[in-house]
Design a protein around this nucleic acid. Structure first.
Lengths: 111, 111
DNA sequence: TACGGTACTTTGCAATGCTTAGTAGCAACT
DNA sequence: AGTTGCTACTAAGCATTGCAAAGTACCGTA
């Protein structure tokens, strides 16, 4: 169970990536995150993220009827969103490299 | 430049790891993080983390004189700290796996 | 009619890194 | 002596973002 603090900034990037692959809506994004191995993300988490992304013009929304429930709010990525996604990926890789360097056991130094 | 939000929870784990390798003090930790590829971590960031870790009994402190400046506050990891470090590493790996799964391009699915 | 699954919104909280300001020791240069 | 710069730590308050909780509402089934 990944603590919430460690998701900060990262969840947003993952959601953006999921949207970039295919137009989708909040409820489905939550399910996909589960499939990707994240512990269940509360609705109170995911929808505010989507609203923020929309407000910042990184994604745009479109309501559509559903045959099995209330209307869905479908999101697709914008040009700014693609740029942001690219920046996120770079930052993520930088983070990954840094952390893994910290945790790499180095035989050459005093451990 | 990794945005500060993405460091949340992670910086703490990295600092704990650095201390676990060798007794060390705040100023030196900041320098090591730089060596590991992190952009400069402000003192106002690092010292509060250390105080928090100490308060939570994950590290313990000992002041020592320095020949080239003010006294240094040396930290070493406690038993609880080692447990916490282990837990952090597991969470980090879980996060890493999850994010990389989200970002892996899958040829078998509609992209 | 009630329940469960689907689907979204809003409010307020908590954790943590950051900014800023302050204190202080030591060495080197003027 | 005074100034500057590096070393070294503390503390107060801010901003961001994930989370919990509560509310609204559509639809199918029992």
């Amino acid at each position: 169970m990944i603590p919430s603090q460690m998701l900060k900034g990262i969840l947003e990037g993952c959601i953006l990536k999921i949207i970039s692959r295919n137009e989708t809506y909040g409820y489905e994004i939550a399910q996909k995150l589960l499939e990707y191995g994240f512990s269940p993300i509360a609705e109170g988490t995911i929808y505010p993220v989507l609203l923020r992304l929309e407000k910042n013009d990184l994604i745009c929304a479109q309501y559509r009827e559903s045959s099995c429930g209330p209307k869905r709010k479908y999101f697709s990525i914008t040009a700014s969103g693609k740029k942001e996604l690219h920046a996120f990926l770079e930052n993520w890789q930088e983070l990954e490299t840094g952390v893994n360097r910290v945790f790499a056991e180095k035989e050459t130094e005093n451990q």
